[in-house]
Simulated assay, not measured.
Amino acid sequence: MSGEVRVLVRHVADSADAVESAYHRVSAQLADVPGLLGNELLRGVDDERAFLVVSRWRDLAAFRSWESGAAHRESTSPLRPFRDHGGGRPFEIYRVTAAH
């Protein structure tokens, strides 16, 4: 079993360019965050207004440390206007339990 976790954050927007631009700004700011292994921006196939940012973390402690830090809110602020609150909480955290 891996200690890695994935954090999935849902976004919705009419402008793919706006979301992609914000995603790239945030990713540049997070490039040196300890424990962050990488991230991806996914776009819905059936709903092109739907976006998902999936980040990979070394472990839950690394994510929680960054999340509770002072830079967390400022560094992710470009994407905040696009958060999808329609289904309740706009993010989920998953622990990797198996992989091939």
Results as ranks from 00 to 15, higher is better:
residue 98 A to H: 14
residue 1 M to H: 10
residue 21 S to G: 12
residue 65 S to A: 15
residue 72 H to K: 13
residue 34 P to V: 05
residue 57 W to G: 04
residue 70 A to W: 13
residue 85 H to N: 08
residue 62 A to N: 08
residue 93 I to C: 14
residue 73 R to A: 13
residue 39 N to S: 09
residue 50 A to I: 07
residue 44 G to Y: 07
residue 5 V to G: 02
residue 66 W to F: 15
residue 74 E to D: 14
residue 73 R to P: 05
residue 22 A to Y: 13
residue 56 R to F: 08
residue 58 R to W: 03
residue 50 A to S: 05
residue 84 D to M: 10
residue 10 R to P: 07
residue 86 G to W: 01
residue 89 R to G: 13
residue 60 L to Q: 10
residue 64 R to M: 13
residue 29 Q to V: 10
residue 44 G to C: 04
residue 59 D to G: 10
residue 37 L to D: 03
residue 17 D to K: 12
residue 88 G to L: 10
residue 95 R to Q: 14
residue 54 V to H: 00
residue 20 E to W: 00
residue 96 V to H: 05
residue 44 G to T: 05
residue 59 D to P: 04
residue 53 V to K: 00
residue 34 P to Y: 01
residue 23 Y to Q: 03
residue 45 V to H: 03
residue 96 V to A: 11
residue 58 R to P: 08
residue 77 S to C: 11
residue 27 S to V: 05
residue 53 V to M: 01
residue 11 H to P: 01
residue 96 V to S: 11
residue 21 S to M: 11
residue 29 Q to I: 08
residue 11 H to K: 04
residue 40 E to G: 02
residue 56 R to G: 02
residue 35 G to I: 12
residue 50 A to C: 03
residue 9 V to E: 06
residue 89 R to K: 12
residue 97 T to K: 05
residue 20 E to H: 06
residue 12 V to Q: 12
residue 58 R to V: 15
residue 63 F to L: 09
residue 86 G to P: 09
residue 19 V to L: 03
residue 33 V to I: 15
residue 83 R to P: 07
residue 81 P to E: 11
residue 55 S to T: 11
residue 98 A to W: 14
residue 72 H to P: 10
residue 3 G to A: 13
residue 1 M to C: 03
residue 6 R to K: 10
residue 70 A to Y: 09
residue 43 R to T: 01
residue 64 R to V: 15
residue 74 E to N: 07
residue 40 E to R: 02
residue 60 L to W: 04
residue 100 H to Q: 13
residue 76 T to P: 00
residue 6 R to Y: 10
residue 48 E to N: 01
residue 60 L to P: 00
residue 62 A to C: 13
residue 37 L to N: 02
residue 88 G to N: 09
residue 50 A to F: 06
residue 17 D to R: 13
residue 54 V to P: 00
